[in-house]
Design a binder for these strands. Sequence first.
DNA 1: GTAGGACCTGACATCAGTGTGAGGGGCAAG
DNA 2: CTTGCCCCTCACACTGATGTCAGGTCCTAC
Lengths: 123, 123
Amino acid sequence: MRVGDLSRRTGASVRSLRYYEQRGLIDATRTASGQRRYESSVIDRVLLIRQLLDAGLGTAAIADVLPCMAHPESQTAQLTRRLIVERDRLTDEIAQRVATRDALGQLIDAAPSLDDRHGSSAS
Amino acid sequence: MRVGDLSRRTGASVRSLRYYEQRGLIDATRTASGQRRYESSVIDRVLLIRQLLDAGLGTAAIADVLPCMAHPESQTAQLTRRLIVERDRLTDEIAQRVATRDALGQLIDAAPSLDDRHGSSAS
DNA sequence: GTAGGACCTGACATCAGTGTGAGGGGCAAG
DNA sequence: CTTGCCCCTCACACTGATGTCAGGTCCTAC
């Protein structure tokens, strides 16, 4: 499949797909004229990449953890440590966000109703 | 207090403090010669700003929600809606990160021990 | 009053992911 | 062979928070 197809099937822009390739996250064979051809397995890989990006990992981190996720048996101690680093970073970010979300939630709950929904008290 | 002091007491770089001011997040009086002077209440404000930044909010969002957090009584419906938007965004980000963290966690748990700690199974 | 540190503004650099435009080729259908 | 769409590379722009450098001023301690 070609970049346009892959783009359509993953939601990633063509630009992004080329960028992922440049970062070593996906690879493509080239036709004689230089056009990229992808195996269909790349679709899932791209979707995974996007999940990780959305989770706040950078392409470098993704390049490290992707192999583990694709071939769990290829995990080395080195890689496992990397996974742990990223997991712990996520844990910290989650805690930070939960704390802040709850703080915002309290302000919202304390706000003059806004007839947002709220059983508006048990009046 | 002066920028250097505020910087030391908050952990924010002088550069960042000036940036926060430029974004309207904090304000300072100026001496005749133009140097910034801060009230001590600004310390807490800066700490709060940093919490929000760490939680992934941008300075624009922070500029909106800070007044609510400082003076809850000043909350307008408009502001409350903004709070809700940010809270919901946080909720999404949290869900995304939790999912990814759990995926990483599974890989880590499935990894060849690494004698990380682990009661190393109930062997 | 002088040295040296703290401060001022302004501007350019960084990172990351993505958008966008230029200038040029590939390939299938008519 | 031409039309039209897809692809190629290169390269510059943007956003956001921060670093950093330059050139200049202020102020405290001696």
